[in-house]
Nucleic acid binder design. Structure first.
Lengths: 197, 197
DNA sequence: GAGCCAACCAAGCAATTGCTTGGTAGGGTA
DNA sequence: TACCCTACCAAGCAATTGCTTGGTTGGCTC
C-alpha cells in the first residue's frame, strides 16, 4: 500500500462508531462494551487500538476542533467586510453541524463533564478562543457602524453561540432544509429580527 | 402540627439536594451515595423516602413542569395582544431559569436519556405541548400583522426555544444582570435584530 | 516456511453501582 | 409503661463498569 493518501483504518472506523455512541448516549453513559458490540468485537479488543475510553473522546474532539478553529482563523484573517465575516462564521458553524454532527454534539453535551479531568483542560482554552472570535466579529461590526451600538456584547455573543450550536440537537442531514438554508434563516432573524418591518 | 401550609420536610430537602446534583453532574453520573453524602446520611437511608433514584428525578420534573405549563396556559388564555403574549412567555421562561435553575437544567440535559424509559414518556408530551404554545404565539403574531410573514415557523420556534432554555447553562442568579434584564435584551435582539437600523 | 504483525478472543479482576435487609434511636401519644 | 412512627445506620449482594492478561488467527513478507 504505497499510497500516502488518508485511508480509513480500522482504528478510524472504531473512532467513528464511538463518536456516534458518545453523541447519542453521552460519554459516561456509553460503555466500552457498547462500542465493541457496535463494532462486532469484544470490549477487550478495543484496548489493542486505544489506551482508554478517555483517549477516544480526546482524539475525537481534538481532531474536530483543530479543523473548526482553523476555519474561524481564516475568516478573521480575510479582508471581507465585518458583516460578511460574521455571516461566514455562522455558515461555517452550521456546516460543522452538518459534517461533524457527532463531534459537535459531544463537545456541546460532554465538555462540562470532561473538564473535570486535567487532560481535557484544553477544552476551556477552546471555549475562550471561541468567545474571542465572536466578540471580535461583533465589535468589528459595531465599529464599522453596521451593528447596533446599544447591544450588550457579552449577551449577544452568548445568544449567537448558543443558538448556533444547539441546532445540533435537532438538525438532521438530509432533512427538509440544508444546513445552508437554516444558517441563512437564522442570520435573517438575527440581523433583522422577527418583527414586521 | 395543625398547620396545613406547605412546610419543608426532610423529603423535600433531599429532593432539592438531588436536583442540585442532577443538574450539576447529570442524572446517570450522580450516584445515590453522592446524594446521601451531601445530605449527611448513608445511601441506603434514601430508600426510606424514595422508591428509587428514578423516582426522585420523576418527582422533581413533574412538579416543575406543572408550574411552568400552568403559567403558559394563563398567558394563552389572557386577552393581551399577540406580541405582549410572546413577550410574557419569554419573560416567564427566564423567570423559571432564575427560580428553578436545577429543574430547567435537568430537563434540558437529561430529557433525551430519560425518554428511553417508559415511565418518562410524559416528557415527550410536554415537549409537544411546548411546541404548540410557541407556534400558537408566533402564528397569532403573524395573523395580527405584527410579525414577519416570510419566517419559517418551525425554525423560528426552535431558535426561540433553544436560545431561551440554553441560557440556563450560563445564567447565575445574583450575577451582573437580573433575569428580567436578560429577557428584555433577548427580546430586543429577537424582535429588532442586531443590525443597525 | 519462518517470522512478523495487526486484529482479535476468552476469561476474569477490582471498583463502583443501585438497592435490600434487619435493626436501632428518639420523640410523641395513649 | 407500652405503643408507634419517622429517620436513620450497618452490612452486604448482584450487576455493571473500565481495563488487563495471555493466547490465537490469518494474511503478508522475505
Amino acid at each position: 500500500m504505497p499510497e500516502s493518501a488518508p485511508q480509513a483504518t480500522r482504528r478510524d472506523e472504531l473512532l467513528e462508531i464511538a463518536a456516534g455512541l458518545f453523541a447519542e448516549k453521552g460519554f459516561k453513559n456509553t460503555t466500552v462494551r457498547d462500542i465493541a458490540d457496535s463494532a462486532g468485537i469484544l470490549s477487550g479488543s478495543l484496548y489493542h487500538h486505544f489506551d482508554s475510553k478517555e483517549s477516544m473522546v480526546d482524539e475525537i474532539l481534538r481532531t474536530f476542533q483543530e479543523e473548526l478553529f482553523g476555519q474561524y482563523d481564516e475568516i478573521l484573517a480575510s479582508d471581507a467586510p465585518p458583516l460578511a465575516q460574521l455571516e461566514q462564521a455562522v455558515l461555517v458553524s452550521f456546516e460543522a453541524i452538518d459534517k461533524h454532527r457527532d463531534e459537535v454534539a459531544i463537545f456541546q453535551n460532554e465538555a462540562a463533564y470532561l473538564l473535570t479531568f486535567d487532560r481535557f483542560s484544553y477544552l476551556a482554552d477552546r471555549n475562550q478562543q471561541s468567545r474571542e472570535v465572536w466578540l471580535t466579529l461583533l465589535q468589528n461590526g459595531i465599529d464599522a457602524g453596521v451593528l447596533r451600538k446599544d447591544l450588550d456584547l457579552e449577551l449577544t455573543y452568548r445568544f449567537i453561540r448558543d443558538t448556533v450550536w444547539v441546532a445540533v440537537s435537532w438538525y438532521r442531514p438530509g432533512g427538509r432544509r440544508t444546513h445552508t438554508e437554516i444558517a441563512r434563516q437564522y442570520l435573517s432573524i438575527l440581523l433583522e429580527g422577527i418583527n414586521h418591518a
